[in-house]
Design a protein around this nucleic acid. Structure first.
Lengths: 351, 351
DNA sequence: GGACCAAATTTGATCGTTCAAATTGATCGT
DNA sequence: ACGATCAATTTGAACGATCAAATTTGGTCC
């Protein structure tokens, strides 16, 4: 390991002072090009890297963002999506010289306790929140304590979307589901069912509206008929299968299904034995393995957008009562990934 | 936000000196119980938390472990397993007052570059490695540079398992597959196929041996017959389906299948239409949704074991030529999760 | 009561960096 | 030629904690 070189070693090697080296790193414009080169050569020669903790102590900034690992979120981004998101976030953060620290929490209150720990210890100086919900206590706490943060998910219900209290990036689920439904209508299907989550659910209700709009506009069915094609349930493959079974009994013939998640879609697909088109949401590995269509969220753009908001003019905080030049949120569009099923017959056990 | 209290504020409030407060936190035994209580009251009253960066600067320890996010590892722990592992690791690290920092890397060399960045910047002071392979350059680099680390995975091939050059925790895949095979033999099946990965692959070869042993001991088949039931391929559902199709053509009737991964098992299960028992590896969500048996790795124990080794006497490093009292590795046993299929018929398209 | 020793507590120095103020050296206007 | 101005660089101080050494406290023994 040896002793790591410090800024003083670099200064000595380059024949300048500490501060000049510091300036080369942080405010290059202050340094004469000639000296800058000398210093840069010394830095490279010694393999010097600034000591993160020393810098943090002095600047009171950690250049680290915190994100909770939420493995089993029923709502919003589930499992493998969070995984992809975390990966993309970390990769892009790295390019901006930001580090990512993860933590776990049992519930929202526990998460707030972690916010406290991590911000007070100066471990992180901004937070990334996923799966926001109506009346979220976490955003409230962060705003009150002046901690910078960005959410993946709109501030459902609490405030105006166009004039938000905080920064957010979200995916327009309604639009995605609407496009998917329109695609199915374009193939000739009319009796298109929607299997989603129980209300109230910000994400869930929004997605359902996409299906509802498309159906009302172009299916030619009466409102009661459309309503009869809607089955709210819990998230999960078995629930998806049961919901479709239920719909077939109560609403009769179903020509296609749009689902609020891939888990539900898997169930519906299994139950329908691949005979009718099923469209899921999130384009998880299951969808591609089994081979059903799914709506893909632009995860990279979400992560990139969040970092942009965090490092941009706002610095993760919306200054109250101040003119805002840059946008404070982004609503991104998902896109439909079409697949033809790899399986022909598939039926759920009768048990 | 206000100004956070420092150790000096606590000292003043408790009527003692800096160092006494520091001792209450780090070496309570040095402090008289009476004073300790006073200080603890002051800490609680002010809501003081030590400034992580200041402590790190002084102690030259970050109390942070780094782990690479590897989203698409074909070998070893794949996708959702890494997710579960990361979650478990973070949760257990938290209890030991350790933080977890994540990073991404395109390949091993890139990962080594990250090791450098993070250790030189004193961002992390130990690494967690997953999916080790034969002649892994990463472990070599870490050993050479004296960076503490633990691997999830044995040092395949490089050195002696019972006298390792570094700390590791692994799951006994051979034993797991062996038990799974024995279970199938117990149900009366004899012609049990094995679908795994191409050789050489540390993990893959080890798992295959488990099947081979069980077959040689108890199937009653001749060695050539057993060999004919083995199909090595790439990881993935389609490869699994193709492998089983191939085996049916070349080896004839197959009564059950054991696979090196759930992805392969999914393919085999789809191809066999759920008619014969299929056992996968990793017990991913796909296995539970679709409903096939799978071998579950004790992820929590793996994470816990790795942290134990890291924080134990070794401090993540095996001192060369020194007597070692504590064990330097752990080999854990997986267990079989049995399921009855939820689907009855399922066939792969002929394309 | 004073000498001695261990336990408890305090003080001085330091980790590596950046901020703020001070210094140097060159250019310029009058 | 002389101070004023400005760019480039240096020096002193501080961030908040811990280590190492010094000091005080308190008890025991003769």
């Amino acid at each position: 390991m040896g002793q790591l070189p410090t800024i003083l070693d670099v200064a000595a090697a380059a024949g300048v002072s500490r501060q000049t080296v510091s300036n080369v790193l942080n405010s290059p414009s202050l340094v004469r090009p000639e000296t800058r080169e000398k210093v840069e050569a010394a830095i490279a020669g010694l393999g010097y890297r600034p000591h993160a903790s020393a810098r943090r102590l002095r600047t009171q900034k950690s250049s680290t963002i915190g994100i909770r690992l939420d493995p089993l979120s029923a709502d919003g981004i589930s499992g493998s999506i969070l995984d992809r998101f975390l990966h993309s976030l970390t990769e892009q953060a790295d390019r901006k010289d930001l580090r990512v620290m993860v933590f776990t929490a049992a519930d929202s209150n526990d998460e707030i306790r972690q916010f406290k720990r991590l911000s007070e210890g100066a471990d992180v100086d901004a937070f990334i929140l996923t799966a926001t919900f109506h009346g979220d206590p976490r955003t409230q706490w962060l705003i009150e304590h002046g901690e910078p943060f960005v959410t993946f998910g709109r501030p459902w219900g609490t405030d105006d979307i166009s004039d938000p209290e905080h920064l957010w990036v979200d995916v327009d689920g309604r639009h995605g589901i609407r496009e998917a439904t329109i695609h199915l209508l374009g193939t000739g299907a009319r009796r298109i069912a929607y299997i989603g989550w129980h209300s109230p659910s910000g994400t869930g209700d929004d997605r359902r509206r996409g299906w509802q709009q498309a159906m009302e506009e172009s299916s030619g069915l009466r409102p009661e008929e459309i309503a009869a094609l809607h089955a709210p349930t819990e998230d999960g493959a078995t629930f998806g299968a049961e919901a479709l079974l239920h719909l077939e009994k109560t609403a009769g013939n179903i020509e296609a299904v749009v689902c609020a998640s891939d888990a539900l879609a898997l169930g519906a697909f299994m139950h329908s034995a691949g005979r009718i088109p099923v469209i899921g949401y999130d384009n998880t590995p299951v969808a591609s393995s089994i081979g059903f269509s799914s709506i893909e969220q632009p995860i990279d753009d979400v992560a990139g957008g969040m970092l942009e908001l965090l490092t941009g003019a706002h610095g993760g905080r919306v200054q109250p009562g101040q003119e805002v030049a840059e946008p404070t949120h982004q609503l991104l569009q998902p896109h439909l990934v079409l697949r033809t099923p790899r399986v022909q017959a598939l039926t759920v056990r009768s048990n």
